[in-house]
């Protein structure tokens, strides 16, 4: 009788054991890769900041705003803007020279259509934003000064709108904190 009960429960014991081992293996892998994943993400932001502010010597992160210094002097601010593109979320690093001028933008991640929407990655598009007055962050057809990518108006507008609204939000927050 006892042997039979054991046999009946064996499948349940077996799958529990498998799940237990799986979870153990995963937590080991996770603990090994965790720090690496974190540094990779930080390195990416740091690399983009360095590209945007070549004179950067150090930066600090406070309330989701990066303040960029060059040998002790503040040379600009940067923060992440999130837009809704054609294929999904677009993350953009926005750099501000001061409270009225954009320093530039860098695309952190995107899932736009290759060959069309993902041209937002190219400097032909992102250079539109370099040293731009914050009041002109609209597509040309919307009365601003940004050239939309041919055939990819949705992606271009998603980036433009995200950059503009996030800048306004952050400036508002900056004023309130002062």
């Amino acid at each position: 009788m006892k042997a039979r009960t054991l046999r009946e429960f064996f499948p349940i014991i077996f799958i529990t054991l498998v799940v237990f081992l799986a979870v153990a293996l995963l937590s080991v892998t996770y603990s090994i890769t965790k720090d690496e994943i974190k540094t990779q993400e930080e390195l990416k932001i740091q690399r983009l900041l360095e590209e945007m502010f070549p004179e950067m010597s150090e930066y600090t992160l406070k309330n989701e705003v990066y303040t960029v210094y060059s040998k002790g002097d503040t040379v600009g601010y940067a923060f992440v803007a999130t837009g809704k593109g054609y294929g999904g979320t677009i993350d953009i690093l926005v750099g501000l020279k001061n409270e009225t001028t954009v320093k530039g933008i860098k695309i952190i991640s995107q899932q736009e259509t290759p060959g069309l929407g993902n041209k937002i990655l190219e400097s032909d598009f992102t250079s539109n934003f370099t040293t731009l007055d914050i009041n002109n962050i609209f597509l040309k057809r919307d009365g601003g000064s940004i050239d939309a990518i041919t055939g990819a108006t949705i992606s271009s507008r998603a980036v433009t709108d995200a950059v503009r609204t996030t800048i306004l939000e952050k400036l508002e927050a900056l004023k309130e904190s002062k």
Binding site: P11, I12, V18, V19, L25, T29, E36, I37, E41, K44
Partner: peptide, 29 residues
Amino acid sequence: PNIVRIPVFIVIIATFVTVVNLIFHAFVP
């Protein structure tokens, strides 16, 4: 055991897929 064969296989496969995900995320972002 035969009756839990497929779930066991799925757990094993899902484990390896998660390992691949973590490794790719960490080393080839």
